[in-house]
Design a binder for these strands. Sequence first.
DNA 1: CTACGTGCAAACTATTTGCCTACAA
DNA 2: TTGTAGGCAAATAGTTTGCACGTAG
Lengths: 133, 133
Amino acid sequence: MARRSQISAALLTLMAGEERHAWTLEELHAGLARDKSAADFSSVFRAAEKLAADGSVRKLRLDDGRARYERITARHDHLHCTRCGALIPVACMLDDDAFAALEGASGFLVTERRVVLNGLCAACRLDGESQAA
Amino acid sequence: MARRSQISAALLTLMAGEERHAWTLEELHAGLARDKSAADFSSVFRAAEKLAADGSVRKLRLDDGRARYERITARHDHLHCTRCGALIPVACMLDDDAFAALEGASGFLVTERRVVLNGLCAACRLDGESQAA
DNA sequence: CTACGTGCAAACTATTTGCCTACAA
DNA sequence: TTGTAGGCAAATAGTTTGCACGTAG
């Protein structure tokens, strides 16, 4: 595939190298800048979309309206803290039997599962209790 | 609660009266207009947000980036056809045991479940096979 | 020479907010 | 007169696109 995009490569490196689980475009953009691989926001966007298109990363949308990109790893679901914004990966909670039955009966062809539990992470939960906002 | 908002009332009536399961702001706006209850888009937005805030309707975001508002009904999950946009309610598929275990162990407090399966509805699936786009 | 990667700026979509007027309490 | 509803228009946020340039192949 000819010239490999520098930005795409930098994005993959960035995402592989940190513990953060999912990245907004803004975070990716800032991350590259921090690593001296600064690139234009639109270029980051295009590179991220391309990675998502060929399956190298997964794109998802949370209730906060911003898209996230995450590395492809084992299937998992997410906890989303609506206070601090943390996105925490957790083991898949979908009931496979119910799922299979549904797909068979309805004729619906599932291509992506989006399971997100919104709420408060342990830290924010404690925080909120002590200093009730 | 003082003057009841005409728009809020019209929205609830509209949503209760049709089979459509979830509504974008645009659809709500158009729906009111059709019913001779035309209102400004921003007023529809504010009314819908207010209903969502006091729990009369549920707001959710799909991968297409547009917010939807749906009546509160029994707990259910959704199938989202990425071709025709249909949002189909289905019985809840979440594994309650895994769910409870997770909530207990992680300290995460879940306030909302978002379970959406993206894919193709039966109709679009057939359509896509015959006239491969 | 031709395509693709990239930067820069402008366009777009879907909201979201400001401000002003009117009516109900 | 006081707070909220609702219209109108402008502002935002987050993405998305158009165009031009440069270099690898």
